[in-house]
């Protein structure tokens, strides 16, 4: 996994609440057996009409947001299906951080596995960042994971919380499986004990 470096990029405003993973990547794109190539279908039904033409007023179709790297979204972003195709599509598009007041649990975890940073901030902070995002490509937002801050193009900074272990993995681009396999002796001894205690499992 790529390391999460300090990010200075264009942020796009997506103020809708409850953006679900069906919206992020509709089911017809789950038929792939690969992880790559989903960016073109990110937000497909909001982004294209039935003929496949771009819908002009969808934010990511506007010229100033085509290079978006940060999304500022409404409450409960990523609810619904567990499909990891949602972060795969975001990542493939080029989005590296999503900011909201809240995220659905599975989507939140899936982001970290793919080098995407989901940032939870209070409503007032998200409101300010949403306004900043509306400035488009004239403005750059800064996400600094090391310092745990998001800074608007005007220099206003907000601190966010992040799980220390997840932060460590993201900063260093660490693979979870490799880390867990370092604890294989603990897994072995757990299995031995559990097979005594609950042999029916």
């Amino acid at each position: 996994m790529d390391k999460f470096e300090k990010l200075t990029g264009i942020a796009a405003p997506l103020p809708l609440v409850n953006i679900d993973t069906d919206m992020i990547i509709p089911k017809q794109f789950l038929k792939t057996i690969k992880r790559s190539g989903l960016g073109v279908n990110l937000f497909d039904e909001m982004r294209y009409d039935r003929q496949g033409n771009e819908i002009e007023d969808f934010v990511l179709n506007k010229p100033q947001y085509r290079e978006t790297e940060i999304l500022v979204a409404g409450d409960n972003f990523g609810c619904g299906s567990s499909r990891e195709h949602a972060p795969w599509a975001l990542k493939d598009f080029g989005i590296k951080a999503v900011i909201s007041t809240s995220f659905a649990d599975i989507f939140f975890n899936n982001c970290f596995k793919n080098g995407i940073l989901p940032i939870v901030l209070p409503q007032e902070a998200v409101d300010t960042l949403m306004k900043d995002a509306e400035k488009g490509s004239n403005a750059r937002m800064v996400v600094d994971l090391e310092e745990q801050t998001v800074t608007t193009s005007d220099g206003e900074s907000f601190s966010f919380e992040v799980d220390p272990f997840k932060k460590h993995c993201l900063l260093n681009g660490l693979d979870d499986i490799g880390l867990s396999l370092e604890k294989v002796s603990s897994i072995d001894s757990y299995e031995e004990k559990a097979s005594q205690a609950r042999p029916w499992v």
């Binding site: 567990s82 990891e84 599975i106 975890n109 899936n110 596995k113 979870d176 867990s180 396999l181 897994i187």
Partner: peptide, 21 residues
């Protein structure tokens, strides 16, 4: 019982565990 993403599916296949809080 809960849902997981594909990276976690791979993690469970490989280790029979999940990293959780």
């Amino acid at each position: 019982a809960h849902g997981i993403g594909t990276s976690e599916v791979e993690h469970v296949l490989a280790t029979q565990t999940l990293i959780q809080k």
